[in-house]
């Protein structure tokens, strides 16, 4: 019996056709995938980038909408929410307790006189009180009473560069946030020294909180230990995790 001789060269045209077809197919599916995913092969990233860009657009839209002379509505003493809700990125019992005598408010950045402040010195500055609504990014709201130094007065006193773009805050609980200068200079923005709750209760921000009724709650830092003025957006604890930076009310 004669065995049929099989030679690869006899099949070359067919093999080439199959190879060509496979190449086209693979090329097509790769192309389709790239189109769907915005060229990164990871479509989550394209969506995230779009949402991030929209959040920065919303920063600018809110800054444009911000009226430096428009006051937040004020309320009567009887309307204050009691007990005032506690909210932080940690449990209530972990709120920092700061010794009033040893406390110093540090200053840095674009500030002429960056000597630290004691509580007694802050108390000696002109004081104001307000009863305003605290609106949380989660949706709930509460009315509270705060007292302290109008923040504009404080910034003027220390010789802060008011043409700078940002004011940043660092806190004893490792929290941080930052705001735009127009919001810092708003007449109701307060370097608060008196807080909701009964005397001696420290969890709402003792000894220094920045109360900004034109911003959502998380833009109102508690237990502030350092204030700095800068032209580079410092971001913040929640802002860096994806919450909108401007977050105005």
């Amino acid at each position: 019996m004669k065995r049929p001789k099989i030679s690869l060269s006899d099949f070359r045209p067919q093999i080439e056709r199959v190879e060509r077809r496979l190449f086209l197919k693979r090329g097509l599916s790769l192309g389709a995938l790239t189109m769907l995913s915005g060229c990164t092969l990871k479509d989550d990233d394209a969506v995230d980038r779009l949402l991030f860009a929209m959040s920065r657009f919303n920063d600018r839209a809110q800054a444009a909408l911000f009226d430096p002379n428009k006051l937040a509505p004020v309320y009567e003493e009887a309307e204050v929410t009691t007990p005032f809700p506690f909210n932080a990125f940690y449990e209530e019992k972990l709120a920092p307790v700061i010794d009033a005598e040893n406390y110093r408010l540090r200053l840095s950045g674009l500030i002429d006189n960056n000597a630290p402040w004691t509580l007694r010195e802050l108390r000696a500055l002109p004081q104001a009180t307000q009863i305003t609504r605290h609106v949380c990014v989660e949706g709930w709201s509460a009315i509270g009473k705060w007292g302290g130094v109008p923040f504009r007065t404080f910034l003027e006193r220390v010789g802060a560069d008011m043409t700078a773009r940002y004011v940043g805050f660092r806190c004893a609980d490792n929290y941080s946030t930052s705001i735009d200068m127009p919001s810092a200079l708003h007449p109701q923005t307060l370097l608060a020294l008196d807080f909701p709750g009964h005397a001696g209760e420290t969890k709402y921000g003792f000894p220094v909180k920045i109360r900004i009724p034109t911003k959502l709650g998380f833009k109102n830092p508690k237990h502030v230990t350092e204030i700095f003025v800068t032209n580079d957006n410092p971001g913040g604890y929640w802002e860096d995790k994806g919450y909108n930076w401007f977050s105005g009310s």
């Binding site: 949402l51 991030f52 919303n58 989660e138 994806g242 909108n244």
Partner: peptide, 13 residues
């Protein structure tokens, strides 16, 4: 929450 807010405030436009 942050992701939902980002979607909400993007789609609102």
């Amino acid at each position: 929450l942050a992701g939902a807010l980002a979607w909400h405030f993007a789609a609102m436009w």
